[in-house]
Design a protein around this nucleic acid. Structure first.
Lengths: 147, 147
DNA sequence: GACATCCTATTACATTTGTAGTAGAGTGAG
DNA sequence: CTCACTCTACTACAAATGTAATAGGATGTC
């Protein structure tokens, strides 16, 4: 069994996974309909991507409803994101600092962002020092976007 | 003239650019020799990548020494990195917060990192607040910085 | 049970990317 | 000048990726 960390996803594959992660599970049709209407790919295009995702081990057939397969993700959004981040980090020398500095420099990171993050981290570190096993979750939960 | 922000670089192209950015300018030979010895690509492979980079407008011929061209980057490391970061940010909903949270969650970000960053940001914001009252934009404006 | 639908499986093809070979022009050492 | 080298320009080709068409099986609807 391949380690899921080793699965690399292309841009389009990631979009499809994104839809699946949001839905939990879904058919090819449902995935297609969830993709942005602007320049929505053909049904069979989505089908091809889902097939490739299955070959890569990123999704699997969960069951069949009627004559349609229902797919579910077998890699978590988090692990996929982790991979992407790690790749990006490599370009920045492996450490998060230059990346953060860059984020700040190009205006993507506000002082408020950082202060909140600092609080979270501070709490984590005290919590972790007492009980190292507990995974603090949901920091990456989607939140209202502004563009 | 294409806007440099629109230039997308592949993994290998980025490695080559990395070498060029470090050197400032250089020939194909020099670039090749600067690539990591582990699995160093053939000379003509590097040559091909450099040619593609030239077609994309990421480098240009600066001059000729002997019969060899000397290339120089025409996109800055910063702008290339900005593009990569923006692409990654899109996956995280466009905001840096979830990305930061994720970084913290997977242990890539320490409390010290964040505290230092906070200092930097605090200084920037006081400097900027004199000009633009609202959001701290413009951090990406050309601000005499060494490359 | 015949038809219009919807799905799957298979095949196809252009582009991009990684990786390099070859031919021939330019250049420095004798 | 001639030879060995070094470069460039051009060509090649497989794998990955984006994008879809086609053929044919399964299903719901009269």
């Amino acid at each position: 069994m391949r380690r899921e960390e080793s699965i690399k996803l292309t841009r389009f594959e990631l979009e499809v996974m994104q839809a699946l992660w949001e839905m939990g599970v879904g058919s090819v049709r449902e995935i297609q309909e969830r993709l942005p209407e602007k320049r929505r790919p053909a049904y069979t295009t989505v089908q091809t991507i889902v097939r490739r995702l299955e070959e890569k081990g990123a999704v699997r057939k969960l069951k069949k409803i009627g004559n349609a397969f229902i797919f579910e993700p077998t890699v978590t959004r988090k692990s996929a994101h982790r991979r992407l981040i790690n790749e990006l980090l490599e370009l920045f020398g492996g450490s998060a600092r230059p990346l953060m500095a860059h984020l700040a420099e190009i205006g993507k990171l506000s002082l408020e962002d950082v202060r909140e993050l600092e609080n979270i981290l501070a709490q984590q570190s005290t919590a972790d020092s007492r009980k190292a096993g507990s995974k603090q979750k949901d920091l990456s939960a989607p939140r209202a976007r502004r563009q």
